[in-house]
C-alpha cells in the first residue's frame, strides 16, 4: 500500500502508460514546462521530452483536431482541455469529428484519443470554470466517458482509457486532486465499464459518480448511525453505462436516489432516473428522486457555490425522507 493523491495517481498512470506505449503523447495548453494547470503532468517533460509533452498555443479546437489527425495516423494522443467549461469551443472537433469518424467512414478507422479535462465546483472559480458538462458528452454517441471518483480509479480508469479503440473523454474533478488514499495499484482493477458498489445496505440505493461519491459516502455513514443502510453505486464510466449493476441493486431495495453535481434539467441524473423508472418499474416502491445541481450558473461566492450543488447534508436528509 502506498499513499497517493488523485493528482499523483493520474500522473503515475500517464507515466506508466507512456513507458509502455511509445505512441502515447500529451498535447495541450501548459502541459509541458508548466506541468499542467492542476499539476497533473508536472515533471513528465523531464522524462519524456518536449516531443511527447507538446505545449500548444491557446487554441482548443485545433488541439482536439490535431489529436484527431494524430490518432488517425497511428499515434495515441492524450489531449488536455484545461477546464471542461471550454468544451463548447471544441464541440465541433469532438462531437462532429472524433465521435463520428469511425461511423461516417464505414468503420475504416477509429480515433483512439483520450481527452483529459476537469470540471466541477469547489474552488470559487466562477460560472465559466466550475461546471459539470458530462451530459454534453453522454448525449453524443461515439464518445466514451469516464469520471473517476477515487484515487485508485484515477489511475486505473486512465490506464484503461489509453487502451480503448474509441475517443474517451476523461473528466477529473478539480476538488478531488488533493484527495489522499492508501492504494495498491498492483491489485487487479474492476473491468472497464463496470460500476463499483462502494457500500451495501438494504434501505436505499444511491447512484452517483465523480466527486459526489465522496459526499454520498459521508451521507451514508451519517445515515448508518441512524440505522438507515444505503447501497452506494459509483458508476465510474457513464459510457459505457453499467445499467445491470443498477438494476440488480434497485430490484433488491426499491428506493433510489440519483446524485449528480450537474444541473438538474436534462442532466445525467435525468437519464438515469428515466431508465430506472422504465426498467425497474415493478420493483420501485417510491418515485426515483434526483438530487442534483440547481438550474442556475455557479457563483464565485463560496456560499452560493456550495449551495448550488448537492451537499452531504442534503443527500442525507433526502435519503431519510425517502426511507421514512
Amino acid at each position: 500500500m502506498v499513499e497517493l493523491t488523485y493528482r499523483d495517481a493520474l500522473r503515475q498512470a500517464l507515466y506508466d502508460a507512456m513507458i509502455e506505449d511509445e505512441s502515447i503523447f500529451i498535447i495541450g495548453e501548459e502541459v509541458g514546462r508548466y506541468g499542467g494547470a492542476y499539476g497533473v503532468t508536472k515533471g513528465l517533460i523531464d522524462k519524456f521530452g518536449p516531443e511527447r509533452l507538446l505545449d500548444t498555443p491557446i487554441s482548443e479546437p485545433a488541439i482536439i483536431g490535431t489529436a484527431i489527425g494524430a490518432a488517425m495516423s497511428g499515434l495515441r494522443p492524450v489531449a488536455e482541455l484545461m477546464y471542461v467549461d471550454f468544451i463548447g469551443m471544441t464541440m465541433d472537433q469532438l462531437g462532429n469529428q472524433a465521435a463520428k469518424i469511425r461511423y461516417m467512414f464505414g468503420g475504416q478507422i477509429g480515433v483512439p484519443l483520450v481527452l483529459r479535462t476537469q470540471g466541477g465546483a469547489g474552488r470559487s472559480a466562477g460560472a465559466q470554470h466550475s461546471q459539470s458538462l458530462e451530459a454534453f458528452i453522454m448525449h453524443t454517441p461515439g464518445l466514451r466517458l469516464a469520471m473517476p471518483a477515487t484515487v485508485s480509479d484515477a489511475y486505473h480508469l486512465l490506464r484503461q482509457s489509453l487502451t480503448k479503440p474509441d475517443p474517451v473523454v476523461f473528466i477529473e474533478h478539480k476538488s478531488l486532486y488533493s484527495l489522499k488514499e492508501d492504494v495498491d495499484l498492483s491489485i487487479e482493477p474492476l473491468p472497464w465499464g463496470k460500476a463499483a458498489v462502494r457500500r451495501h445496505g438494504s434501505d436505499i440505493v444511491i447512484v452517483t459518480y465523480s466527486r459526489q461519491l465522496q459526499f454520498v459516502m459521508q451521507a451514508a455513514q451519517a445515515l448508518s448511525k441512524q440505522n438507515i443502510e444505503a447501497t452506494v453505486i459509483d458508476l465510474r464510466t457513464l459510457n459505457p453505462l453499467d445499467f445491470d449493476t443498477i438494476r440488480k441493486e434497485v430490484e433488491k431495495v426499491g428506493k433510489v436516489l440519483v446524485v449528480s453535481e450537474a444541473v438538474l434539467t436534462s442532466g445525467v441524473a435525468s437519464e438515469l432516473s428515466a431508465r430506472i423508472s422504465e426498467e425497474c418499474f415493478d420493483y420501485l416502491t417510491d418515485p426515483v428522486v434526483r438530487v442534483a445541481g440547481e438550474d442556475c450558473p455557479i457563483s464565485v461566492s463560496a456560499d452560493l457555490e456550495a449551495g448550488s450543488i448537492p451537499s452531504p447534508k442534503v443527500i442525507e436528509e433526502t435519503a431519510k425522507r425517502l426511507v421514512m
Partner: peptide
C-alpha cells in the same frame, strides 16, 4: 463542417 477537416492534417503532419 466548413473548416472541420483542417486541423486533422496538423495531427497527421505531426505523426509524419
Amino acid at each position: 463542417i466548413v473548416g472541420g477537416g483542417i486541423p486533422a492534417v496538423v495531427g497527421a503532419g505531426l505523426a509524419a
